[in-house]
């Protein structure tokens, strides 16, 4: 079946089964590899993108449910050649280690800060539930506070 998706400001038409998760459509049909597969059960957040600005996990989200949204992936977070403030802070504070989960982590943090520019530690705990096996959590938390204070 054909589906029309709006991803990073561009319209794409894909021909896949309706239950194909958005993750695999982004990666294998549209070629955006920055969004990662981690668990396939929406437990780790490596596949997080923005849909109309909200953080969503795409590994269990059927493509048929993604039509009509403005989808933004890690590749579309920067604008006009300028990194998003979260991306800049991630470099400044040297947050990533292996980096595999960080696309999803950055998308989750960007969505949090867009909605709540000064999150408390409790807000952060409740919202940023992505898994990072390298254990970058200390710098993630420090960086969210750094961005909040700005």
């Amino acid at each position: 079946m054909a589906f029309t998706l709006k991803v990073n400001g561009e319209t794409h038409t894909v021909d896949v089964e309706p239950d194909t998760p958005l993750l695999w459509v982004l990666r294998d049909e549209i070629g955006l590899k920055g969004t990662k597969y981690g668990c396939g059960i929406a437990a780790c957040g490596a596949c997080t993108v923005h849909m109309d600005g909200a953080a969503e996990r795409t590994c269990v989200l059927p493509v048929e449910a993604a039509e009509g949204y403005e989808i933004t992936t890690i590749e579309g977070l920067a604008s006009g050649g300028q990194l998003h403030p979260v991306q800049e802070e991630w470099i400044r504070n040297q947050v990533p280690q292996c980096g595999y989960c960080q696309s999803g982590m950055i998308m989750a943090v960007a969505a949090l800060l867009a909605e709540n520019p000064n999150p408390t530690d409790q807000d952060i705990n409740d919202t940023i539930t992505n898994v990072c096996r390298c254990g970058t959590y200390q710098r993630v938390r420090d960086s969210i506070h750094e961005l909040s204070d700005a």
Binding site: G31, L32, K33, K36, Y37, Q87, I91, P96, Q102
Partner: peptide, 16 residues
């Protein structure tokens, strides 16, 4: 680190 914040870092799973 820079390629790890914008989705351009290539892991094994990203090969095409």
């Amino acid at each position: 680190i820079p390629p790890k914040v914008d989705g351009t870092a290539m892991f094994g799973i990203d090969i095409e």
